[in-house]
Amino acid sequence: MNDSNDENSLPANNTLADDALVNLEAEFEDSNVKEVLDKLDNELIGLVPVKTRIREIAALLLVDRLRKQFALSSETPTLHMNFTGNPGTGKTTVALRMSEILHRLGYVREGHLVSVTRDDLVGQYIGHTAPKTKEVIKKAMGGVLFIDEAYYLYKPENERDYGAESIEILLQVMENNRDDLVVILAGYKDRMDTFFHSNPGMRSRIAHHVDFPDYSADELLQIAKLMLADQNYCFSPDAEKAFSEYITIRMTLEHFANARSVRNALDRARLRQANRLFANASKSLSKTDLMTLEAEDILASRVFLEGKLDMDSDAIEE
């Protein structure tokens, strides 16, 4: 890469000469980040602002690596992130990808993801919280610590709540062990805003606030097809039409959880398909029969009949 002026480079500390040239593209290829970014593009529908942000972060890290070759040192960039968005918008999935990207760029050493919630961090009695939080942090070292529903950590209505202690330790680690781990918080937008409002220290230590938009009906249909393909199912043409109608109605109902609602609807459709096949058990079935969801499997949903949620549906989940 620095063949333009070899004798001037300093091999002792691997610093390149001032007029040496480096190739960003080669570095990009070299890091295999492209593969992860492409995977992100192919497997995650929509989410344009999120993808742009991840690309930006990847670009920054890559350029930073090149700068290092010229000994243009800058501090390790703060990579702690905050993912906000409605239920089922893919926060966890993206966090998983993020740990892979950071690993490929060499910003986390191991690239594993430790996913925790309040229960894993906050103890039940005095003196229980600190060791518990530290235990989790130790496990996450060299990887990404993903705190789901992070706003539960802080309960303003109970001033003796141990959550505050946990936050304090987290803040300390986020500042002092920046090279060792990356913390990603996730939660619903409005509640996370309240959380940051009462913990300004947390807000300032997080460099990247990424908002996950809701999916459009088209995107949800694409997601549904992708999910089915993963499980070796497919829609018949009629079923596809029915399902896109289903999504339109479902989106107006309460407790709509984007991709998660889609997954639940598909699970119920599979149930009805199995039931339908069983009802005509005397008929011998082909591979296509076993794979195809028909319109009737979807139209039987109560969403169509009464404009209400299925009883066994995601009414309970938020």
Partner: peptide, 17 residues
């Protein structure tokens, strides 16, 4: 000094201890 550390992936946590 504390419990043995299982399920660790990275030396940084152990060095901290």
């Amino acid at each position: 000094f504390g419990n043995p550390m299982f399920d660790m992936k990275d030396p940084a946590g152990i060095l901290m201890e």
